[in-house]
Amino acid sequence: MDDRMLARIQGDPNYQALVRERSSFGWTLAIIMLTLYYGFIAIVAFDPGLISTKVTGVLTVGLFMGAGLIVASVLLTGLYVLRANTRYDDLTRAIVAAATGSAK
């Protein structure tokens, strides 16, 4: 990778959009995930009584939280894939086309 090519790609508005959008979306989802999980751990550590409070029949708050975290993990990764498959892949293709096309 020579410096001129690097500078050209860095100047590409598509590249700037890709980096900005992916980074902010990725970190947003990561922070949501970290908040959910360490929020859960904080409840386990500081308010264990809430975990064993019954919601319906013998099923407790903790069981619903556990199932919720598993489902949230799958949904959030799915959400990222959906967005990446459309928006980020389109941007990447445009960047690669511009870089290789103008290099010839």
Binding site: G26, A30, M33, L69, I70, S73, L76, T77, Y80
Partner: peptide
């Protein structure tokens, strides 16, 4: 329930791997 806390810990690393 303690076993479920473990399972969740093993799973939640995956979204982080995905996003970052």
């Amino acid at each position: 329930y303690y076993g479920l806390i473990y399972s969740i810990g093993f799973l939640v690393g995956w979204p982080i791997i995905m996003f970052l």
